[in-house]
């Protein structure tokens, strides 16, 4: 069994139509899994389903063997999931350090060493620790957002399109950092619009179409698959 095993998920928002159908996503410890697919394929929805933000009619979500299907998102944070939303993912009026502190809100122990680790990972944040996060550049904001999620020392980190709206250089740097995080043994699940670059760093890739799994393979194999290249990677 995989570390994260979200299998046969079917559901949608409220009482609306199902957006994902029989969708399965798995991630191993220390690996990066990427969900790609065309617009409206249900990528973000699939991730939200993993995080408990919509009601599943069928399927189950298991984290490290523990069934968390019925847990609220907040509880999932406590059992080791970290989630970085795509938008509005930082506290703009609070300083960088306060953002990270809020990330550690549920922790009762001393989190100074985790703070140090985040600053080591994103050195620029250490320099700007007392600046309001809203004043940072787009790439730095994403670093704050990721850093905030890391403060709970999650075992699974989920990122919803972390590179949306940042420049290619910033994107490369961000992916480097994500690789670095994965190396510490954290499982990473990521939804990405920039499919090619994301698959390059991914151990596993899930190509979703219309809320269903279309291709599932290693990142390299998907990049090599001619059909995937033609349909989803622009040749």
């Amino acid at each position: 069994m995989s570390f994260l095993d979200a299998s046969h998920m079917t559901g949608g928002y409220g009482r609306g139509a199902d957006i994902i159908k029989d969708c399965t996503i798995t991630v191993e410890k220390g690996e990066i899994a990427v969900v790609v697919g065309p617009n409206g394929a249900g990528k973000s929805t699939a991730m939200k389903a993993v995080f408990g933000m919509l009601n599943l009619r069928e399927g189950a979500v298991l984290l490290d063997g523990q069934d968390i299907t019925d847990m609220a998102p907040q509880e999932r944070v406590r059992v080791g999931m970290g989630f970085v939303p795509q938008v509005r993912n930082i506290f703009v009026s609070m300083t960088v350090e306060e953002n990270l502190e809020m990330g550690a809100f549920i922790r009762d122990d001393d989190f100074q060493d985790t703070l140090g680790q985040v600053y080591d990972l994103f050195p620029v944040l250490r320099d700007k620790r007392n600046q309001p996060a809203g004043e940072l550049s787009g790439g730095q904001r994403q670093q704050v957002a990721v850093g905030r999620a890391l403060m709970t020392r999650p075992r699974l980190l989920m990122l919803d399109e972390p590179t949306a709206g940042v420049s290619p250089i910033v994107m490369d740097e961000l992916f480097d950092r994500i690789l670095e995080i994965a190396r510490t043994g954290i499982a990473i699940l990521m939804v990405e619009q920039n499919a090619r670059q994301a698959l390059e760093i991914a151990d596993h890739g899930f190509v979703l179409v219309n809320g269903e799994n279309r291709f599932t393979d290693t990142g390299k194999a998907l990049l090599a698959n001619p059909e995937v290249r033609r349909s989803f990677l622009g040749g």
């Binding site: 998102p73 944070v77 939303p85 506290f91 809020m102």
Partner: peptide, 22 residues
């Protein structure tokens, strides 16, 4: 204080505050 910061966080971004376990 922790509670005070939690209030500011909640006022700033309710969804994210909930995600952070506030």
């Amino acid at each position: 204080t922790r509670s005070g910061k939690a209030m500011r966080a909640y006022s700033d971004n309710e969804d994210l505050a909930l995600l952070s376990g506030i």
